[in-house]
Design a protein around this nucleic acid. Sequence first.
DNA 1: CCCACTTTGTGCATCGGTTCACAAAGGGAC
DNA 2: GTCCCTTTGTGAACCGATGCACAAAGTGGG
Lengths: 235, 235
Amino acid sequence: MIRRLSQARERGIPEATVARLPLYLRALNGMSERGLATVSSEDLALAAGVNSAKLRKDLSHLGSYGTRGVGYDVEYLIYQISRELGLTQDWAVAIVGVGNLGRALANYGGFVSRGFRVAALLDADPEVVGDRIAGLNVEHIDELEAVIRRRGVSIVVLATPAAAAQQVADRVIAEGITSILNFAPVVLSVPEGVDIRKVDLSIELQILAFHEQRKTDRMTGGPAMAEEWPEAVDL
Amino acid sequence: MIRRLSQARERGIPEATVARLPLYLRALNGMSERGLATVSSEDLALAAGVNSAKLRKDLSHLGSYGTRGVGYDVEYLIYQISRELGLTQDWAVAIVGVGNLGRALANYGGFVSRGFRVAALLDADPEVVGDRIAGLNVEHIDELEAVIRRRGVSIVVLATPAAAAQQVADRVIAEGITSILNFAPVVLSVPEGVDIRKVDLSIELQILAFHEQRKTDRMTGGPAMAEEWPEAVDL
DNA sequence: CCCACTTTGTGCATCGGTTCACAAAGGGAC
DNA sequence: GTCCCTTTGTGAACCGATGCACAAAGTGGG
């Protein structure tokens, strides 16, 4: 008996595909709310802002869930993607660092929506420890290990100052955490097997500035005035 | 006369390289503060969390700024990368949407550090209009076009609710803005030539959840119990 | 039952990015 | 000046991702 299924799904969905699945899921949820029963790859791709061939190939990595001539069943696809992403279980998230950003994250609605639950807020500043934010008590960083264990936290969000991030990371990793979302502007060094995702506002701005400069250069000076640095004559 | 320079720099640094330059810049700034005069690709790569061959290739796209046998001059390289990224001029940034996130962004120190200046805060809620945040007056969204023009804003940060983002984007684009950093969880549709960068907290979490699930699966159930969805028998 | 039409799933060419490995280039000792 | 050591800059192989284009599979009408 030939196990056709495994052909597509057997261990390993491309990373680029994984990064787009949440996008598809969001688009599908919108369609579900609007009462759509099925959707074609063309329409879904449009809503998600990608090319339809790419969408089909992405979905084909999960399995063969479409119907030729018809499209994809919206609810069924939502279920499949959710399951693949692990959103059918719920994840307890701890936010470390309750400054402006940590507060914003704690209050961010889209967080809880699907699968994620803010289970703890921690900070080192005695001034904010004990505050009630988004229905949670802010706890002292000394409690970090205990809180992680007690609440079954499996994802940690770092919203601390840069100087504290590595230290906190080391502690949560020692406690068995292997998934970290880091907002602090530092390169964390972590052992094999720990997943770090980094969100860095100033890097995003710098990338924009690069392109913006290119655009305005093209308008005005142009390529000719490319070499206007002080010294540095190169051949 | 052969223009060897253009070989490397002529129009176009790979996108992947551009995304890493800010990382190098941050590492270099740290070294500069610690008084280091030169740095090898090996050391800089380590500090930035990348492979040294990749670092060298990245830098080679800007020009030939290293010295064989020695390494790179820290200050000089900072200057070159800054210039390439367009950080030698300063950019006026407007933040639209002064909720929790907008407030966090306005107060974020690393923002101003190099080249960026928060020049305006705008919101639709009359409750917050007039508030003073991070030394700025919050202005009403009706003033959007006027403020952009008056303050010479060239980068807009969207921290509005999802429902408002597209509308605000349309307005700022009409005003000539071509660089947008979007925190709202929507796919913006924009004309050719407008650069959008998207930061999406819930997508990052979902990607983490995917990997976390894989890891715990491997520990417990394993690959055998991969097909446990209700209906759906596939061949 | 057959035909025309729609839409998926995928083989294949292509592209951009990463990594290896090494020749070329510079520094310093003698 | 010559030799040895260090480190850059890059050619070339490799790898993953993208997009085209089409065969396969399904629907609906007559």
